[in-house]
Design a binder for these strands. Structure first.
Lengths: 218, 218
DNA sequence: GATGATTTGTACGTATGTATA
DNA sequence: ATATACATACGTACAAATCAT
């Protein structure tokens, strides 16, 4: 019997739980019973515990010694806080990247952006989501600061579920791509502060789209 | 005498390893064998694994699936990158705090700053280090963004070992306190961008002091 | 406040995947 | 290239602590 998934079992559990928490399927304050979760995923408590540790360090759940884990409070305020952190992190990255990217890196970023036109036209959200990740990742690497890039990746990973929700709003991919164009322009002009501002606006628009999606769901 | 018996075994191991890594007792790239570590602490591999997970998420070690954990690379470049991230994080916090702190929070920050004068005069580095932590923490909380504050605390925690080194340079506490005064002034004027600039300079001076200390040690 | 039930924290054994001879 | 060695990832079992009654 071949295991089609290359991922670690604990990672699969972590991603699934993170998804359920960010989408609201697991409400704030709900107790996360290790055994119960293990049963749900057909796993023992060991990988479940490792997944919970990860989630705790990313802030999605709270673990109190010997008292179990509960879903962290995810009020609209908390989510807004997370988006602000995310936006500021992206703004920091693009500001540094504007000053530090090599000509080769800049043209690679432009090529990426040009390639995404077809995805938007075809309405392929999954493909665009993948492109989106690479576009932002290229900016992280453009900071030429491995530590900042790693932090940015970790933060983005953490917001992944929100992002997917957000891109499903009709018309959002088109707008998202247009905003990317503005980011690119600011980078090409070498105006780091302007790039940072455009990035904050881009992230704000994404968060607004997500809020609307969540409201329409519930 | 510290009573560590109340803590979880995995937490004790995590703290001990974190200390050894930041002080350099465990050099970069060293392989962390679970069994071996377990033997050292008289524990099984289970709590060791949990400790390693935590350390990985804080970036002190790297875990590659099925290939074991190693102490993360801590070259001068890496440390410089960490300082830059730290400086930008602090700059972000003080910018937001400038716009969002309540009058009560602002005056509390001022009182903190005034109280530190005696510590510097007495040359009490430990007391000043503690004050320093509280001063910066007050700024984190001034962002009124719990998520950002938590990230800032985590980052600062990670830089703790470096910071203590840095404050030992003669004359550094005096300069550090003077810089705090400038930060406070910018906050009181409500000039967030200026506060951010002053914070970057403050952090840069701290990192320079640390570099000089490390060079003189080796 | 004490006791039983539930759940976490830890120990240990097995199997899979990685690296090396 | 194959096989061997080895460390990790996961499963199971037990003990200690929390909570519910």
């Amino acid at each position: 019997m071949t295991d089609t998934s290359a991922l670690l079992l604990s990672e699969r559990i972590r991603i699934a739980l993170a998804d359920e928490i960010t989408t609201g399927a697991l409400a704030s304050g709900v107790a996360l019973d290790e055994q119960q979760i293990g049963d749900r995923f057909g796993a023992s408590r060991t990988p479940v515990r490792e997944a919970l540790r990860q989630l705790a360090s990313s802030g999605l759940i709270e673990m109190r010694p010997r008292r179990g884990a509960i879903v962290a409070a995810m009020t609209p305020d908390t989510i807004a806080d997370m988006f602000e952190m995310s936006a500021e992190m992206e703004a920091l990255c693009i500001r540094l990247a504007t000053y530090r990217m090599t000509p080769i890196e800049r043209s690679a970023l432009r090529r990426l952006h040009e390639a995404s036109e077809a995805m938007v036209a075809a309405g392929d959200i999954d493909a665009y989501d993948t492109f989106n990740l690479r576009f932002h990742q290229a900016i992280y690497e453009g900071t030429h600061n491995r530590f900042i890039a790693a932090q940015a990746v970790a933060l983005r990973e953490r917001m992944a579920a929100f992002r997917r929700t957000q891109l499903r709003e009709s018309g959002r991919p088109v707008k998202s791509r247009a905003e990317h164009g503005q980011l690119l322009d600011a980078i090409m002009r070498g105006d780091g502060e302007e790039a940072a501002k455009a990035m904050r606006a881009h992230m704000f628009n994404a968060s607004s789209a997500m809020e609307r999606m969540i409201q329409s769901q519930s």
